[in-house]
Design a protein around this nucleic acid. Structure first.
Lengths: 243, 243
DNA sequence: CTCTGTGAATATATTCACAGCC
DNA sequence: GGCTGTGAATATATTCACAGAG
């Protein structure tokens, strides 16, 4: 985002707590998932060590992260699962119902509309729009696909909070502009392009091919380190112990 | 990953260059995309400033990032687009052909199999497997959906480098174990769970609901900062100038 | 005079290590 | 004794600011 919370408005009160670091925010959903799973298993207390294992991070980091939210643990015991779920949910704003609009009803749009993980965390897909008139009218996950022409009306009528762009790169910027003009200030972009937005609008990007490229970089690097086995076909290099 | 390159093997030579920082690696694909777009527009030189704008970062960061790869710019002029595309591609390992296996032929698997951005960057989807026998035999993007039972054979025969998990969380760990046992050392996980893998195997996670939760956090925060307008329905708060 | 490449300065993030509470 | 919460130490990342190449 381009917003900077260090410039305070004169009138507005606020950060009594020094603001949660970005890196911590990015891990809270992971903790939340681990905690939810533990709760479903009937666990009612977790130590930072156990939570760390479940989340795939170190225990010091769990404690540091959680300390930014407050002192919600008990020394000698650990964290009460339900209470911590509540606190993290509140911090993330999941106690409210977020209305999400998906633009693009291709395979990815379908996948997103059908994704169960949204509803359980308070995200409600209120509409699915598509540019292709042929797809308008289809029914996906209880939603009827509407025309992107109605974007402004849908945003206004449904009170959309978050726009998801699941469409080709060449349509992304124009659609994003329309969302922003209609009042949307949070956008999740799956199109492989950089979006320009005014200050105060937050865009997060998920780029599938970027992820593969990062994997390729590391894999290449490991292959070089293990000194380029000249074995044709599958290279079953003993990485585990070599590194 | 769990590997640490600071522990050097006694015999192996290596890092003549101090290794590219992780944060830089994550941005190289973005630069690459911007450069490719520029090349298609017939541009043959870009300054760090222009590249920065196209990539959505600051120009100092572009220069610092590129300096980790070597001195590929010309003072007073900028970077030659084609040459830089080549250097970044080489660094990322995109000059080789990466064979990708997608497990899970649901909507997300379909979307991934159809995604054009892979092929253009040297990623070739060699197979699409599914757990659901009913889906086996379908044809997607020129691929016939095969049974997950054949995972090991496909990995061996096609020489799979990267496994992509596009399946439900409860099947992810077991499938990942099979990929790893079959020799795959890079995994891209779309399932909403933490995967345990041995050292030497790299997992990257893409989690759709995590991204929404991060957006929700920031949006909530902004709404609080602007002091909770009691306007019902759409809240058209003047965020841009308020922050 | 422009624009890169890079040290130095700053900001963020992670890890360590231990005091203090249960 | 076990485990949290947190300062201090370290590691990474970003930004600044300018010397020097073209």
């Amino acid at each position: 985002m381009s917003t900077d919370s260090s410039t305070r408005l004169p009138g507005a009160a606020r950060p009594l707590r020094p603001a949660v670091p970005e890196a911590t925010v990015a891990r809270l959903p992971v903790y939340l998932r681990a905690l939810t799973a533990a709760a479903e298993d009937g666990v009612d207390t977790l130590s930072s060590d156990e939570l760390a294992t479940a989340a795939g991070v170190g225990s010091a980091m769990v404690r540091k992260d959680l300390s930014h939210l407050g002192s919600y643990g008990t020394r000698g015991v650990g964290y009460e699962v339900d209470y911590l779920i509540y606190q993290i949910s509140r911090e993330l704003g999941l106690t409210q119902d977020w209305r999400v609009l998906i633009v693009g009803a291709g395979n990815l749009g379908h996948a997103l509309a059908n994704y169960g993980g949204f509803a359980s965390r308070g995200f409600r897909v209120v509409a699915l729009l598509d540019l292709d008139a042929a797809r308008v009218g289809e029914h996906i996950a209880g939603l009827h696909v509407d025309s992107v022409d109605r974007l402004e009306q849908v945003v206004a009528e449904a009170g959309v909070h978050i726009g998801v762009l699941a469409l080709p790169a060449d349509a992304a910027q124009a659609t994003c502009d329309r969302l922003v003009a209609a009042g949307v200030t949070s956008v999740l972009n799956f199109a492989p392009c950089v979006l320009e937005v005014p200050a105060g609008v937050m865009v997060r990007k998920v780029d599938l091919s970027t992820e593969l490229q990062i994997l390729a970089f590391h894999q290449q690097r490991r292959v070089f380190q293990v000194e380029r086995h000249p074995v044709a076909g599958r290279s079953r290099v003993p990485l585990a112990e070599a590194l």
